[in-house]
């Protein structure tokens, strides 16, 4: 464990707490893409298949359970909670996200570390996570205005993988034969997808103005 990875995990946890706060406090999920949340639930379930077979550390197991439980809880809320589901922007959240699932799985069948069920699902989860934010970014472009909590949620979600890139650089420099090409390349693509959001987020923060994304 290094400071970059810890910062990344804490930022990731913070993004989930901000989203839970938004949904719980406002009893609304307006501006949140349910499709992106469903993709994250698939990412965590597919990635943590080793939850019961490989014990790495208490921290590792605890965080895996938190990520799986929170992502499923958010999807459940957005689908079944009477108050929350009414505020879902159904007509704006139209990205065909099942294509992302299919393409990520197809890529995982081709590019993986080992041809085993666990490794293919791990690679699948890495590729899917890289593109999972797309429905959310498309929804924001369409809805134009972004409320503060949603903006912070997406900012922390993008920032966490940027910390992981620093972690991979650090581990590459300090650990012999550390190579994680699949996670590294995918992580760079994932962070790059946030580039324009980060740009407009920074501008709005500098001008102390409302975050507006160009339609």
């Amino acid at each position: 464990m290094n400071i970059f990875r810890l910062a990344g995990d804490m930022t990731h946890l913070l993004s989930i707490l901000v989203l839970l706060l938004k949904i719980y406090a406002t009893k609304s999920c307006s501006g949140i893409s349910r499709k992106t949340q469903e993709l994250y639930a698939i990412v965590f379930v597919a990635r943590y298949l080793d939850l019961f077979t490989d014990f790495i550390s208490v921290y590792n197991t605890f965080m895996k359970v938190v990520f799986i439980a929170s992502s499923l809880a958010i999807v459940w809320c957005m689908r079944f909670h009477p108050m929350v589901r009414r505020s879902y922007d159904r007509e704006l959240d139209t990205f065909r996200h099942y294509f992302l699932v299919g393409a990520s799985f197809a890529l995982a069948l081709i590019l993986h570390e080992k041809f085993t069920v666990q490794e293919i699902f791990w690679a699948f989860s890495i590729y899917l996570e890289a593109v999972a934010i797309l429905p959310q970014l498309v929804l924001l472009q369409r809805s134009g205005n972004v409320d503060n909590l949603t903006g912070q949620y997406i900012f922390f979600l993008g920032a966490y993988r940027a910390f992981y890139i620093l972690n991979w650089i650090y581990r590459y420099l300090t650990e012999p034969h550390f190579t994680r090409w699949i996670a590294c390349v995918s992580g760079v693509v994932q962070t790059a997808l946030y580039a324009d959001f980060f740009y407009y987020y920074f501008i709005s923060w500098k001008n102390n103005s409302k975050l507006k994304l160009p339609a």
Partner: peptide
């Protein structure tokens, strides 16, 4: 990577 060493990152 040592054999059997699975992914230690989240």
């Amino acid at each position: 990577k040592p054999p059997g060493k699975h992914h230690d990152e989240l």
